[in-house]
Design a protein around this nucleic acid. Sequence first.
DNA 1: GGGACTTTTTCCAAGGGTCGGATTTGGACC
DNA 2: GGTCCAAATCCGACCCTTGGAAAAAGTCCC
Lengths: 419, 419
Amino acid sequence: MRPRSSRDIRRVNRFDLLRRVYSAEHPVTRQWLVTATGLSPATVATLTTELLALGVLVEAGREDSGGGRPRARLAVNGDHGVLVGVDVAETYVRADLFDLALRGLDSGRREIGPEDHQPDVVAAHVIGLVRGMFGRRRLTRDRLLGIGVSLPGQRHTDSGVSLFPAAVGAYEDGDPEGRFRGLLADAFGRAPFLENPLKASTVAELWFGGGRAAHDLAVVTLGTGVGVGIAVDQRLYRGATDAAGEWGHTLLVPGGRPCRCGGTGCVEAYVGAPGIMATLRERDPGGPLLHAEESATVEALAAAAGRDDPRALAVLDEVGTTLGAALATLVNILNPDTVVLGSWVAARLGRWLLPAARAGAATHALPRNLAAVDWRLSGVEGHAVSLGVAALALEGLVAGGPAAAPRPDPVPTTAHRER
Amino acid sequence: MRPRSSRDIRRVNRFDLLRRVYSAEHPVTRQWLVTATGLSPATVATLTTELLALGVLVEAGREDSGGGRPRARLAVNGDHGVLVGVDVAETYVRADLFDLALRGLDSGRREIGPEDHQPDVVAAHVIGLVRGMFGRRRLTRDRLLGIGVSLPGQRHTDSGVSLFPAAVGAYEDGDPEGRFRGLLADAFGRAPFLENPLKASTVAELWFGGGRAAHDLAVVTLGTGVGVGIAVDQRLYRGATDAAGEWGHTLLVPGGRPCRCGGTGCVEAYVGAPGIMATLRERDPGGPLLHAEESATVEALAAAAGRDDPRALAVLDEVGTTLGAALATLVNILNPDTVVLGSWVAARLGRWLLPAARAGAATHALPRNLAAVDWRLSGVEGHAVSLGVAALALEGLVAGGPAAAPRPDPVPTTAHRER
DNA sequence: GGGACTTTTTCCAAGGGTCGGATTTGGACC
DNA sequence: GGTCCAAATCCGACCCTTGGAAAAAGTCCC
């Protein structure tokens, strides 16, 4: 949405300022915000006093200024409330509790099977996990400022059973997703923010990870699935139908390896966990590194590579080089200034995959586009999907204008009960 | 740049309004602008009176309203000045003269060779062509509101001799491009707006072609080179270093056909003119359709396909199908709502390539992303590159704020001399 | 020809924003 | 306690959009 009135300007500026406070590693001064946002000192003062009054920001110490009035340091007021981020994956549900500064406080996880992928079942798990965390910390429901849930969205072909066949974005009541949303809204007193893991982790990188300094960003998610989250102008790019970045089942090698989606030569079959498994099967069938489980294989590979096992290194080099060749297309077309490798495969193997990918990209990307890219590993601490979807819920709060912004603390009685 | 102050709001709104007047086929009413832009009637009135006072818009008739005050129709005031768009290509320089409504008035062309690709030579050609058009129409220099020049930008590897090795975007003085810019500025009294043909034609589609209704757009340029212009949120996407959309020398088929860039399996070697030549050579070596020149071959192919020649149709089907497979990647990643095929190859052969491409994409793109796409042929009348770069020059004028907006007519004395 | 009516278009005051420059604030230092 | 200094705030100027009142510009009917 393009800003149309002066109110929108305020919203954009406030959001920009707040995001910078979040992204900074330490409390920041108003002066720093002036240079970071490009706003005038007067405007920064107005915005910060507004946010301080709301309780979203707090003063966190001061800084000597060499004889003059000391600069105040500002930080997000973590105590002002909590946020919840939930990652509903194929085999588990994980919920994370964050304070308002998006520092992780607690988390819980339950394993689920394919038969559990129904709105009521998943909602019950989510509600149970969140209730548990609230109970452990003796939090009341009114401390919850926002809740975000990542759902396994878009699937290729109809082969996979999906909880949300209509995928994220179908908001009508009556569909499974609408029901899910309703159940959570009833349980928590506020509508959850729904997104898919790809976009959630992209937002996490944008706020807290390798994408903090990026303007045009590509976040490559290497897990069981493979995707690429895109941010343009520091904002998540969604595409026309919210389906941008579905990279996994894109053709990489015509007539190549079979993919679990039923097609052949998909990116996913060469890159990420399935690609690693396939490469290992090709190069070293029956070898000690190959396990039945993807995660066990990846762990074994990481351990072997850690002790310079040549077979492991060769596999990683091959996978990384192929990844790089595939990424060259992205680099040529999108011309990003930052490419981040994320998700659990990258967390384990990124150390070896990244240099190989960079080299692989070099042979196929245009020199100029290549030179623009800063290659990075994730850098998000904790579970990126939960964090990202919580950040998205927060965005919704802040973007909704003053009315929807986090409100002052609940009545004293409640605060009492917490102790 | 994100809007920061209320002034920016005005700039954005004015630009949006003006662009819609341009894009409309017929004069529009204020009411139509209200619904099109989403602004209030009051604001539309303010903006239109401002633009009418400047002379950029004029009233063009009225429209019955059924008993009430008739609606006034507004159109761009073509007489208010002229714009020039220049396309500097590898083998020619073409200049187009437009009125302010961007209707073509005149054009000129000169053939050039590789040895001419130097700032001074090209500038001399441009100046000569423009002076010629101004002379024929007895225009004085002060009627010129803006000039845009498309330069052959980004090249793959160092194999090609390029006029502007630093490519568009190097604005320092002393480099060839700076010199070129200076020469034109001296000759015309205003700095030219420089861009490359890919981005220029994308803007042309956005204003006047298949992209008028698009929000997230991909313009596929099929010529001797192949590229894809991207627009996000109805605005040209440039990427981090202004090099987005360089698709031609991206790997499509590993170990595939050799490409003129020196690599193998590039998109360009399968799609567009070089791809058509190669396919023809493979399928029908020595056949009557194959000429030495790309353009002659394309013409022959179009003629043959027009009379349902099976060989021609087979070649076009193969090329189109491959194009579609390659486009599936774009559709998956960018999730555009519109894909436009443009440039001279598409103008001749798009009729056959488009359906094949659509079918080819269907086998590799995700159903949901595929369903979002509206496939179109260019729809720009005239030379898209010249038009687009002239439109970009106009954008610069309008975006520059009231001060830089087209000014009222020159002093009467000057106007006299024109007659 | 003159109201009455209808629809478009403009006017106006309210409401909200940013910003430069003057002013206040909060500390160190003498 | 005064002085100095830099940070932060305040204030007035200025800009923008907008809803509703008012004006404008037609048609229609008597």
